[in-house]
Nucleic acid binder design. Sequence first.
DNA 1: TTGTATGCGTTATCAA
DNA 2: TTGATAACGCATACAA
Lengths: 337, 337
Amino acid sequence: MAPLPTLEDVASRAGVSTATVSRCLNSPEKVVDHTREKVMSAVDELGYTPHFGGRALASRTTNTAGAVIPTMDNAIFACALQAFQKELASAGMTLLVASSDYSPSHEFEQICTLVERGADGLLLIGADRPKTSYDYLDKRGIPYVVAWTNHSDQAACCVGFDNRLAAKRMAEHVIAHGHRNIAMISGITEGNDRAAERVHGVRDALADAEINPDAFKVVEVNYSLDAAGRAFDKLITTSPPPTAVVCGNDVLAAGAVTRAKARGLRVPKDISIVGFDDIELASVIEPKLTTVHVPHRRMGVAAAKCLLDMRELERTIPGREFMTEIIERESLGPVNR
Amino acid sequence: MAPLPTLEDVASRAGVSTATVSRCLNSPEKVVDHTREKVMSAVDELGYTPHFGGRALASRTTNTAGAVIPTMDNAIFACALQAFQKELASAGMTLLVASSDYSPSHEFEQICTLVERGADGLLLIGADRPKTSYDYLDKRGIPYVVAWTNHSDQAACCVGFDNRLAAKRMAEHVIAHGHRNIAMISGITEGNDRAAERVHGVRDALADAEINPDAFKVVEVNYSLDAAGRAFDKLITTSPPPTAVVCGNDVLAAGAVTRAKARGLRVPKDISIVGFDDIELASVIEPKLTTVHVPHRRMGVAAAKCLLDMRELERTIPGREFMTEIIERESLGPVNR
DNA sequence: TTGTATGCGTTATCAA
DNA sequence: TTGATAACGCATACAA
């Protein structure tokens, strides 16, 4: 286990100074061809890799962006992140990913970890987090983009969409199919503004349609198929049972559909179920989910661009709002009672 | 944008030396109560966070493990990683994740990135990669665990299962249902030993059953629903069409099932389709997939333990082999022709 | 174009 | 128990 080669090792092997080696690596155009070749071959022979800590310390920058997402377990974040990362990579930046498990306190820890590691900028999901977290970043002048939402209390750069409006439109769509007894399976809204706003949106639509809000049943659960199934059981056994179930995302909708079928219910003949996100799962399950399409890849790209801009300009910039779209498939039908 | 507070800022504010502050943070027991309190409140007031680069430079360690997975887009890696991370966290280590997109050269880049950033150990998926990658790690004495397989050319610590045997058992199971005209939809085997071994395993079973290996059709595709659908189209239009399709993983199987249904085929009455991995998707799709269960969470935990041990012992240790299990659900039926 | 010298924030050694 | 001080590996201002 030989000690790792350092700049100095490379320098002495190539017969130049450490400064020259450093230049070869960081701004090759500032050094003459034949010395560069000498240096580069020394680098190869030694298998030299610059020490990140040393570099970070000396240059006060890391070319690193961080992202804290709620979970790696939902395809929608994976997709957005992939796009985010690609865009960053083309600007020479690396991405560090951490997950918060939908817990604000855990999120704060992850933010700290990423910042300690020298993240030059951060991608955060949703706006609902303790002021502490924002202060922490603002105090350090670390740029961040808040994705998946179109507004925040802070003057943050938001790259996202109007969750409330999107959910309202979907609920209106359900209502237009004749449903008036509508229930909802939502993610846990505590600390999750996207989930909370989707519930609000549905309420908005009910209010507009003059449907008694007290009869609107919402069950909050973790984002898992099983939990959604249990929530469905609970809802379907109330009286009168809902004729349509609006779900906070496609995973919940898939869980509900699976449970409905297991109970011998036909979807959408006996009960309508709609989702949100439009992940792949939505078109694999039978019946295919009627859902809200969210342009996650485009959000990822836009978020990266914003972060890059903010880094260059050294100030916050306005974000970007995306539109969602209802994807009509098979799981929503006319009311049948 | 005030400059970040440093150890020295904290020290002067608390009226102690930087050494004492450092001790407070790293081995609090070595400093007397009342000084520690002074220091800690100075830390809080200043919102001090240690600079990772400085720390890495001085201590020659980062308490960081890295993982390079093929893709974040498959739930199976997400699950394993979650478990891996949790186990590491309980030992005070942080996890850095990168994805290789199933490309060995891209994987090498990611390995370098993680090592440069000071990863104290690495989790890699599969054993099939250029010797360069192994040499790079060995030369630097960085411990790594090779997961998802039970053997490697190098003397690496493998935490995984026998892909070939598992696939063979599944194929035997299919054959036991009377199928003799079996096709396969596989992931790209180039640079992916798990995929390659699963194909081998199926071949093994065919050979044992004295089925003509020349008639065995394999289509290699990217791991996506659409690609699997197209592969299914290709296979089903050969003559004679297969009565069973073995798939390299559940995503491929889901794509095949979806496509089969779209063509008006009943699964498994008209055609049997089996998967591999047992991800959630497998029990959501209709019919539910008969598949091979892989204990990804347990692998994740075991991999973390191995890495931790290797780090402590400063040498490679033997890995651990897991058993897989066939999960009988609905997508495999008796041959019907 | 290249080399010299300094400092980045932290840990660790050694004295006090 | 605490403090002074020397590394750690690299980038960069400045000098040559």
